[in-house]
Structure formats: C-alpha cells, structure tokens
Nucleic acid binder design. Structure first.
Lengths: 269, 269
DNA sequence: CGCTGCTTTGAACAACTTCAACTTCTGTGG
DNA sequence: CCACAGAAGTTGAAGTTGTTCAAAGCAGCG
C-alpha cells in the first residue's frame, strides 16, 4: 500500500536541486539516524505515518538561523547533518550558548510550554534538519503509543542532560568542564558512527567558553595545557584524543587542588 | 533592621503547625493546586479518571526520602504540601542539589528516559505528595489529548527552567545568583497564593549554596550584604523582600564589579 | 597584500573559596 | 526547665582560580 504513497510523497517533495547527500530527501526508514531519532522503536506503516508529517527543509548555510528568540513555536526539529548552537540573550546584551546539536538530536523542546522559542538556533556549518510540525506530532502520538513514549523519553533525556550540565557549571573547575565537554562530544560522535578519538569541532572557542561559563582565554589555556600534558592533540578545530582515561579522571573530580579520594564512605543520610 | 520586630517574628515562628489538612485525601477536583498541576485544563469525568490513578501517600517527615538515586522509576510525583530537594551524588562523594520543589511541582521527569532515578529526593519539612504511576499516566494520555499536552508542557517548562539555571550558574556573580534564587522562590510562592515578599525558606544555607554552585560562606555573606543594603530582611530562614526592583537589577546584570544600590544608570539591554 | 576575525599568551587583578574561629540555634536528656 | 552537645550560620584573613586587559600570532578572504 504505502510504497506507492511514499514514492509519490517523495516526488512531491523533490522539488529542489539535489546537491549532495545532505539534501537528499531520505525517508525516515532509510535515515542513518533512525535509531537516535523519534522513529526509534517504530516501524512499518507507523513509521510511514511519521514520515508523512515530517518536512525536510533546504539546508541551512553557516550562521543562518533555524529559528529566532521569541519566534512562534510550531515545530520541533531534528538535525540530519551538520550542527547548530542554541543560545539565549541575557539581560545585559550578551548571549548564553545553551547547547550544541549534532545529527539525530532534537531542537525546540523548550518552546512547547510557552508557545514561543526562548532561544535562537543558528547553524554552525552547512546543516540540514527535519521539521516536525508539533500539532501533527501530538495527534500522531495519540495513535502511536510507542511514539509518545519515545517523545517523552527524549524530553526526559534532555532534562537529565541539562542537569548534568548544571552540575558541571556549578561544581567543576575549568579543566573539568572542558574535559567533560570534549568527552561528551566524543561520545556523541561515537553514537553516530564517527570516530570518538578524532573529530572536528564545528563551534568556535568563544562558543565553547560561553557554553561552559568560562572566558575564552581560559578555554584556550586549557586546550594548551591538555596538549602539553599529551592528553589531546588540538590543531585548531581538529581534535585528537590521546588519553581518554586521563580526561575522564579530570572531568570526574579534581575538585580544586589535590585528589587522593579513594573514599568508599557513601553518605546515606 | 529592627530588633524588636525581628524578635516578634521569631516568636511567631515557633507556633506549632497543624498538619492534618496536609494529610487529607483531597480529590484533584478540590485540590488548591489544580491549576498548577497535571489536571490543569482537564475537568469533569476526565479529571476523575486522572484522580483514580493517583495514589496519595502518607506524608514524609523531614529528611525522609521520596526516592533514592538509582531507584527504579515507576511514578512521577507531585508535591501537595511542604517541599523537597533533589540532589545527585557527584563522582567525588559530594552531592549536587539539582532543585527545590514546592507544592504543585513535579518530580521524577528526569527518570523517564533511563527508567531509574538519576537523583534522590528528600523532604525538607513535613511533606505530602501525590504519586502518579507513569504507566497508567501514559495510557491515560492516550485517551486524553489535553492531558498529554499538559504533560508535554510541564516537561518543556522543566527544560526551560533548567536552561535558566544553567545561565545563572554559567554567567552570574554570587550576588546575582542569590538574588535570582530568592526572586524565583518569591514568584513561586506568589503563584501558590502565598506572600511574595515574606516567606520561610525550608532549605538550609548549605543547600542553597550547593544549588547555586557557591560556598556556604559566600551565600551567608551575600545575605548579610543584602540586609545591610536594606534590600531584604533575613532572620535565619525567615525572609522579607524590601526592594524587589533592586533585586531584579542585581539578578539581571551586575556584570562583575560592585556598585552601590543608588546606581541607577546602568546599562539596560 | 593588508584587512578582519579568531586564537593564543602574559601579567595584574577581582571574585570566590578555603581555613579557622566564633556565635547562634536546636533538640535531647537530666 | 535548664544544660549541654552538635548542627547551622556568620565573620575574618589568606590563598586560588579564573577574569580582565593588553598585545601579539595566525588563518581566511576580498
């Protein structure tokens, strides 16, 4: 039944030039991000239903906005390729980078509550996204319990991740922050089938510093220090992780000065 | 700054609290938190369906746990009265307070993704909660689109709030953090029909400091400073907000350097 | 080639932490 | 009801981390 429909659908949406693999209108079924995205754990005709409500937009160029602060919320977005940053303006005219978004990751979940985007999203490089009109998605989740479950899971994960970051910002030293950041990126690349030890950072030092709540200079110094210690090789945006264990150690604790924490005493009360 | 006044306040503080109202099994329909909680925008027989899946547990005593780290996730919880803190253990055996929860607020949303609680929840005072078995809730949201919508809204709000806190932790000075914290508490009390200018903090300075990513001593000093500047009156846990505008100004910007309260000509926007 | 924006480096400085002592509060048992 | 011990909060002084300011090195691009 649906093969035909799907073909028709694809033809209808196939109006822009096919430049490269990034702009191809891949069905969810064939998308390599399948397992990371909303369709995880959905298949068959259900997947096609989801597929049908998704709009695949033309790729964004570097520095183009996906949405602006205060923009009306109507869709959530999934990164298909490339990357974006989200950031909010602060009272004093600065901006605070609230997140980086790699392929398979969702954007816009923070806007559901108020109906408008509390942050802006800007492409860090050439980036393509799937647009999922939220109203349609809500309707579809009524039909597909597993889709609803997946949506809730993804939102929950976002809450969880945010809390991890809060912990980072509240308690960790500069080197712990950068280390944790690099490990997080590394892990996310790995989950997407890329190398976890060698990658390019699409964001500037400034964005990293902003995200981690540090001054650019501090981030730069930390990169230098890690390199001197042989833990990483950093040539501009090209990163090579040499010693993952060391990084995990640094990211984990290193409270302020010395370590020697082999304490087993779990506080229970 | 009036010792007589403060002494009087102190005496009033020691009045015993009658808690029998708190333990009554109120139906959602009659709950004063109706508008803040899941049932918002549901009514009639639908509300009764929700009511039926909710379990009202016996009140928790101060320092009792609602759930522990790593505990199996099966329900989300709504605070009915009292308050709780959530906190996660850090690698080095410390704990990081991730939030305070007042009546009408949800707990456990961060556990949906992994199926177990990434943080523990402990009562700060005598506290009663509603338990909402998640599986039942998920089923019910399939029937009641508005309930689903409300759940998504609440989760989205949590994401949004977390991002606000990230901003606080990443960019703000100690006084800005404390000021923003007090304003947040004030607002939440107001939404619950309590005074927004005079309230009791159920959490210790230690918890506040931990939550804000500061040392206890720093928080203490900031309280003292605010009091000296006449912005608040703080007698232990009893807080009186005298100058909301000043607090908003301090919470908003006040980049790094200090200035006196008289200073009106600061950068706006 | 010279401009611009991004990154790195150095030195002085400020904010916050840590350490330590002291005060105030709370609750428990005599 | 009071005394006492432990917890919680406050205050001061010294010490660190990270910031700010200033300037120089590097890549990209017209």
């Amino acid at each position: 039944m649906n093969e035909m429909e799907l073909a028709t659908h694809r033809k209808k949406t196939h109006q822009s030039k096919v430049v490269d693999i990034l702009t191809t209108k891949v069905a969810c079924k064939e998308c390599s991000l399948h397992q990371l995205c909303l369709p995880s754990s959905i298949d068959g005709s259900d997947l096609e239903k989801l597929d049908r409500i998704i709009e695949r937009k033309r790729p964004l160029k570097r520095n183009e906005h996906l949405f602006q602060v205060g923009g009306t919320f109507s869709s959530i977005y999934v990164v298909r390729s490339g990357s974006l940053k989200t950031y909010s303006p602060t009272v004093d005219g600065q901006e605070q980078v609230t997140g980086f978004h790699l392929p398979g990751e969702l954007l816009g979940l923070d806007a559901i509550g108020k109906g408008q985007h509390p942050c802006a999203a800007k492409a860090l490089e050439t980036t393509s996204v799937c647009e999922v009109p939220f109203e349609n998605l809500e309707h579809l989740t009524q039909e597909l319990p597993t889709l609803q479950h997946q949506l809730l899971r993804l939102m929950s994960k976002e809450i969880f991740d945010d809390q991890e970051l809060m912990l980072l910002l509240g308690k960790k030293t500069a080197e712990a922050r950068l280390s944790a950041f690099l490990l997080s990126i590394s892990l996310r690349f790995k989950q997407r089938g890329f190398s976890s030890t060698e990658f390019y950072l699409s964001m500037s030092r400034n964005d990293i510093a902003n995200y981690l709540g540090l001054a650019v200079e501090t981030v730069s110094r930390m990169f230098t220090r890690f390199q001197e210690d042989g833990i990483i090789n950093a040539e501009r945006k090209h990163i090579l992780i040499n010693n993952r264990e060391a990084m995990q150690r640094i990211a984990g604790m290193n409270d302020c000065c010395e370590e020697t924490v082999s304490d087993e005493n779990q506080k229970s009360v």
